[in-house]
Design a binder for these strands. Sequence first.
RNA 1: GCCACCGUAGCUCAGCUGGCAGAGCAGACGAUUCGUAAUCGUCCGGUCAAGGGUUCAAAUCCCUUCGGUGGCUCCA
Length: 646
Amino acid sequence: MANRVEPRDRIRRSRPVLWARVFYFGQTAVVGHPPPAVERKRKMSNHSEERYEDSQLYRIRHSAAHIMAQAVLEYYPEAKYTIGPPIENGFYYDFDLPQPITNEDLEKIEKRMRQIIAGGHPFVKEVVSAEEARQIFKDQPYKLELIQGLEQGGFDEYGNPLDTKPEISIYKHDTFVDLCRGPHVENTRQINPSAIKLMSIAGAYWRGDEKNKMLTRIYGTAWRTAQELEEYLAMLEEARKRDHRKLGKELEIFIYDDEVGPGLPLWLPNGGIMIEELERLAKEMEEKAGYLRVRTPHVTKEDLFIRSGHLPYYAESMYPPMELEGVRYYVKPMNCPMHHKIFASKPRSYRDLPIRLAEYGTCYRYEKSGELFGLMRVRSMQMNDAHIYCAEEQFEQEFMGVIDLYKKYFELFGIQKYVMRLSLHAKAGLGKKYVDNERLWLKTEDMVRRAMTNGGVPFVEAQDEAAFYGPKIDVQIWSAIGREFTLATNQVDFAVPERFDLKFVNKDGVEETPLCIHRAPLSTHERMIGFLIEHYAGAFPVWLCPEQVRVIPITDAQNEYASQIAAQLRAEGIRVNVDTGAERMNAKIRQAQLMKVPYMLVVGNNEMASGTVSLRMRDGSQQNSIPLGEFLARIKERIAKRSSEL
RNA sequence: GCCACCGUAGCUCAGCUGGCAGAGCAGACGAUUCGUAAUCGUCCGGUCAAGGGUUCAAAUCCCUUCGGUGGCUCCA
């Protein structure tokens, strides 16, 4: 119960997520990887740490946004300004500009901001009536819209409903006035002119709605000191180095080819090995947890997806149909309908439940071109999918069984920076994005909430993030460059089993519809490997490494010996290569290091004479002249345990 | 899909306001046989994303398409 995050902390759509306090005060946090909600919670209660919104840094960033808006309006007097909040690591401001803005303009604006800061202007708050506000912003249509929202007591600046009617206030500094509830620094001088930097220009819809006009957003970063800024920029640089798109190419894991198409990755041999290892892991774990493996086709008739609800609710993300002999077929975006058919293939008794059907199924989703992102967001994906059919009284145990599975995987991979998110429906979406049965939504949402709370698993809640057929627990992670993704997911389906007329006979001999849990603890191969590349910065644990050992003969005279060593390792199932190239040993070691091969076995005359190997590990440490058997025992033990140790 | 920017050799990148396409790495070949992150030399390699236009002349300017990047929207 104590783990439940208060509504104030709920993640809300379109609202800037305020991780910065954690990031800033955190000691182990990596850029773009906010620590889990648990940690945030604990820190807040134990150390009475101030909220980001109350911090000086928040004020600095908020004030920097105003100063930037002033500078932009000086260069573009016809520009309309909208909103500009502090966010993680900085701030932004959205403008409706008469012309596109360039990176050179950004430099000018930044320079002007420093002048304004040097001017030592006080920030002055004034509470005004709606009428006065309308007068002040009479030429600013976006501000007038905001004023109306505030006056009606309905909506905040992001268009989210408010509980209470807020006061209307303005903040002035120098020549600039903004509709704003604050808080701000007292004087522009409290902003360090050498600790701010404008970062990028982006498009953003007014109020985050794609039906609205596209505005120009300028992102900036602001810190207390120049050194903090430098450190932040250096961390961004480090993060770019572990970007899976960059490492994936360097380590020859996957490629994209223009003729194949966007979002359709080609797995290179190294990626193929990693996929095989992940599937082996999944099969082992699922076998122990009582799953049964099934296989289903990639294409099915339209009728199936009409019944499942995919065409009514999910068609936008599906590839268009192909028609053959008057029948329309779709490539599957999910595996569930076929699994439902397998469940329905024979009568089921309560004694058979739960039935857990698993498949690493390949699905295709037509993601909009701009949404694609490396391996993290693709159009063809292979899911660590399974569907658990159970009676309502089995639900909690089964649901938490899946959560336990997550935890085991996360422990194995050392994944600590994630947030479990209870994704709920939104009333407005009923009948459109969501199956139209509010009673069952509320009921299943509460079942999940209770299960998580009883299990003592911390989570946050998010409105309007559910699947069309039910609520879910999503595991949110962050890419190296800070983008948020759902890695694993655990979903309740109260709707589709009924549409498929799925039944089991209960103890009383009466037919009952089972609940279905959709789950994908290892995500898709695409997203999982994308994530793992970044998580390990390409230095995978030995069991997952495409190349586990490279044997490096010092001169050609040891080539034969090196090959014998490799043959012995290969016979034990180790992935090993021999570098018989003409380069010097130093160059061979460098190449192996760049490919992040965990073990290098250097063999020269000494080793050959004594029948040993010299072990150099990826971390630079080395053990000279050890018997091959000793190394073999070490690596076999690491692989068997899927250890993260070298 | 939308806004902005980008696309030069397999990879990383030079190529200023239009005037004969370059480097390093990789690859091939030759020499070298070396003790823990780059040995030397020679050679090969490009319809400058594709298509159209402006111009005496286009990698460079303009348009369209394709692909990518940063965001927005959307999501495993």
